[in-house]
Amino acid sequence: MEKGTYRVKTGFSEMFKGGVIMDVTTAEQAAIAESAGAVAVMALERVPADIRAQGGVARMADPKRIKAIQKAVSIPVMAKVRIGHLAEARILEQLGVDFIDESEVLTPADPFNHVDKWAFRVPFVCGCRNLGEAARRIAEGAAMMRTKGEAGTGNIIEAVRHMRVLNAEIARLRGMSYAELVVYGKELGAPPETLAAIQEQGRLPVVNFAAGGVATPADAALMRMLGADGVFVGSGIFKSEDPDRRARAIVAACTHFEDAARVSEASEGLGEAMPGLVIDDIPEHELMQHR
């Protein structure tokens, strides 16, 4: 019997496809997410909108909070570590967290490296804005990717930008000879072996969700149309007027994204969405996606 193999890790991510992963900060929110049809919850100290508003250093959640959320639900529980924070990652693994998000939403811990994810039994998901970032994270052992978007804004434009860039770069890669691929890898800062695997499959070799700015059922449907395997919703649910209804609606829209009538029906009468932020109004150094 072998635990923590790459197949066991990536196989698990395949099970999330078509689903919605929701940020929660309490056991009550986790129960709402589960009953609304979330495929997993992300246990957090604060949702991204609050992290952005309050500023300061954002760290891994208190283990006590994570345990309370694990106890409250039967679906997988994910949690975030600061980029490169090996010790936080070991704590989450020891807690039996099902997936670790090495996330730019928290304040980075290591200015040079990300976590060596091959060294862990628990699988990791990482953010990316483009093919180079995706390929480096996959080379480091990430078993799942998500486009970064701009968390806590309720504004979908950055999520769309990152998915469009990724798709365009993969399309470019597909037409390349191996010699061209090696040079492209140098340009992107990406290992050629990983790029070769992406070229062969015509897509990332791991599941890729969209994140950062999903606030409505239509946002979820849009990201699926652009090729996302599913969506993460951070502040979009529990910062809205009626989280339970909105959560159910986003779950329905994520599955039925090709059926406009279903997405329309899901969008009806949900009350106020989370308050949104215009990206140009955010000072450059406060953008999380550059981390």
């Binding site: 099970m15 589960e34 049809g37 495929v39 679906i75 159910r248 779950v251």
Partner: peptide, 15 residues
């Protein structure tokens, strides 16, 4: 298929 049974059921039931 494999997936999350609770999520799959919501989608089967409401659909």
């Amino acid at each position: 298929p494999g997936g999350e049974s609770t999520a799959m059921w919501r989608l089967i039931d409401h659909g």
